[in-house]
Design a protein around this nucleic acid. Structure first.
Lengths: 119, 119
DNA sequence: CTAAACCTTCACGTCGACGTGAGAGTCAAG
DNA sequence: CTTGACTCTCACGTCGACGTGAAGGTTTAG
């Protein structure tokens, strides 16, 4: 299929699909005219990419991570141990981000509640 | 004082102080040479700006918020009711961000734990 | 009077996943 | 042949708080 159909079947814009190729996430074949040709497997590949993006990974990380993944009924199974450690590491960063936001919120609460303080 | 001294006394770079003026957060006087002249009050003002930035507010929001603040021994007291509601609203956004990150983390956990799934 | 500090205004770079045209080629159908 | 749907490759714009020189005035201690 060409890019338009893949876009329709995945719900991802053509621009994004071209971007994924630019980043090495997809490697569609090319017709002599230059048109990209995708296979059915690419529909699942895009789904995987989306899941990983939703998990907060960058395209650079996904590039390394994708070849380690097994497609299993829409679910994902990490294979390489490097992948697992990378994901765990990323999880830690998310924890940090949450902690920072919680601290930020605490700062806000101090300011907000200061209103009630005796002046 | 000139910008260098204010930078030293607040720990903020000169570039950042010029940026704050650009955004309307500070309004130093000018000498005939063009040099910015700050007053002692600006040291506290910078402190307030930093606290609000640390609370996750944008400079645009701080611009509206600053005139509503009373400087009280390094603490901040919101005065206008608009300010309070703005802060509360911002707090809600932080909550959303935390929820999103938690969801993201949950997605990650699914992928990570999938490793143990029977293949 | 000179050199070291200090200051000024531009103005582009940063980081990431795309959005948004611009200008042009491709292809199947009528 | 022609229309119209589809696709291509640039290449700049987005969002924000500054970082980082560049090129050149100002002030001040000695």
């Amino acid at each position: 299929m060409r890019i338009g159909e893949l876009a329709r079947r995945t719900g991802i814009t053509e621009r994004a699909l071209r971007y994924y190729e630019e980043q090495g996430l997809l490697r569609p074949e090319r017709r002599p005219s230059g048109y990209r040709v995708y296979g059915d497997a690419d529909v699942a590949a895009v789904r995987r990419i989306r899941i990983l993006l939703a998990a907060g990974l960058s395209t650079a990380q996904i590039t390394q991570v994708l070849p380690c993944m097994l497609d299993d009924d829409g679910l994902l199974a990490p294979l390489c141990p490097e992948l697992v450690s990378a994901l765990v590491e990323h999880r830690a960063k998310i924890d940090e981000a949450i902690d920072e936001l919680a601290a930020t919120r605490a700062n806000l609460d101090v300011i907000i509640s200061a209103e009630a303080r005796p002046t």
